[in-house]
Design a protein around this nucleic acid. Structure first.
Lengths: 243, 243
DNA sequence: CATTGTGAAGTGATTCACAGCA
DNA sequence: TGCTGTGAATCACTTCACAATG
């Protein structure tokens, strides 16, 4: 009983979401069964990784056969928590905010966008498809009365922390942050950052150090690693300790 | 000599990009020096992590004092490879594509968008700010003649692999993929995936398993980990081996 | 003497090797 | 026989502990 449950890493959670997506496609194509080998191949991971990821949550396969596409899909829905609807709001109706307002993939997974918020009078009280854009003043109001689960922050870096604080005071339960800055949140609020310029910089690093030994820059799914570093321009390195 | 260089993980590269961003802000605010402690605090990591990350590339600090903001910022620019200009194209001018076309942060870091591509006649030959939108037919042409470094894929999942293949045949050097599917690329082409729905699903997982022991869902920077898992609905788990 | 830089230890994630089972 | 499930081994990343030093 004192034995603690296995630690589920974010890498594992992300892979589970990828497996789920693969299974939805397989299901649409009426595939009945799938092996860990095939599931792995379609997501560029190893089959033992698939089996290990699943093993944290139960045993879902038939030895000698594989997994039922429909069953495993539904199990993953339950594990990930997308067997229910989550309510979202999007704060900041710029380009990224608008992209989210009609992001079909999210809708399909059961993320329901309840409203957008902005301070620009030209955007406020407009509609974007079925979604109302409200003035930022009404943030606390809506979060409180509608019991919003997830707040998506797509405001400029300069106001991101302020918006984040307001969301949390209003009772939001999780945050998805697109602003290019690390937000401070209490430890019980899960937060994820999506940062396009950091990803471009990772590519820049790989292109700069592509030298002899090019290598995959990580298929988003695991942490990835590589050899060889930028040489220090700083001449002080490598003299190091002379022992 | 046979000793291989240190392995630089993607986590480290991403943190370096965060440190660089922090230093640019400090530089604008005319801060002259900064300690690893402070740099860590502003990025929600530990100070020893900052020093370890930097140590892979040289020694940049003064003991008892800290780092020069200006110098470390420039060293990081060089290490990350953003002390030069990289050329990009954006394939698929939907909401996300448009968001990228006027993504100021990227421009500022020296990522220059050369053109956008689409097949929709209403978008083709339009302009978006200073950036031309061309027909997808001209993709190979432009990548070849302009020597484009990075291709950003923002087309629907169904055509993403096709676009990716064309980019690679045309000689692209790296790919940033926003399509919700893992792309197959040769191992010498670095690729990064940005996948909003996966991040929402990670939040869903944490909200679903928030039980007693809520915990940070990873501040984007490290992998993060947590206790406790979804109980298998599948009754077959936990009988396990009875030893 | 505050703060950096770094081997070594500790922690966590992936892969191996194979037992278990349909 | 073929494929799953998993403890043990390996590999990678983070943190500790402390020596080095401006």
């Amino acid at each position: 009983m004192t034995r603690s449950e296995p630690q589920i890493s974010i890498s594992t959670i992300r892979r589970l979401a990828l497996y789920h997506r693969t299974l939805e496609r397989a299901f649409e194509r009426q595939e009945a069964g799938i092996s860990s080998e095939e599931l792995a191949r379609r997501n560029r991971v190893k089959s033992v990784q698939v089996r290990k990821d699943l093993s944290y949550f139960g045993t879902f396969g038939k030895r000698g056969f594989g997994y039922s596409v429909g069953e495993l899909k539904d199990e993953l829905k339950r594990i990930i928590g997308i067997n229910r609807v989550w309510s979202l709001i999007v704060v900041g109706i710029g380009n990224v905010g608008r992209a989210l307002l009609d992001y079909a993939e999210a809708q399909r997974l059961g993320f329901r966008i309840i409203a957008g918020f902005d301070i620009d009078p030209r955007k406020v009280e407009s509609r974007h498809g079925a979604i109302r854009v409200l003035h930022l003043d009404r943030l606390e109001d809506v979060v409180g009365s509608e019991g919003i689960d997830i707040g998506v922050v797509t405001v400029p870096a300069s106001s991101a922390q302020d918006v984040c604080d307001r969301l949390i005071r209003a009772g939001i339960r999780a945050i998805l942050n697109f602003a290019p800055m690390p937000l401070q949140v209490p430890s019980h609020i899960p937060i994820r950052n999506v940062d396009m310029s950091i990803e471009l910089e990772v590519l820049s690093f790989f292109l700069s150090h592509a030298a002899a030994d090019a290598q995959e820059a990580g298929q988003s799914t695991h942490s990835g690693r590589r050899r060889s570093a930028a040489r220090p321009s700083n001449a002080s390195k490598k003299p190091k300790r002379l022992e």
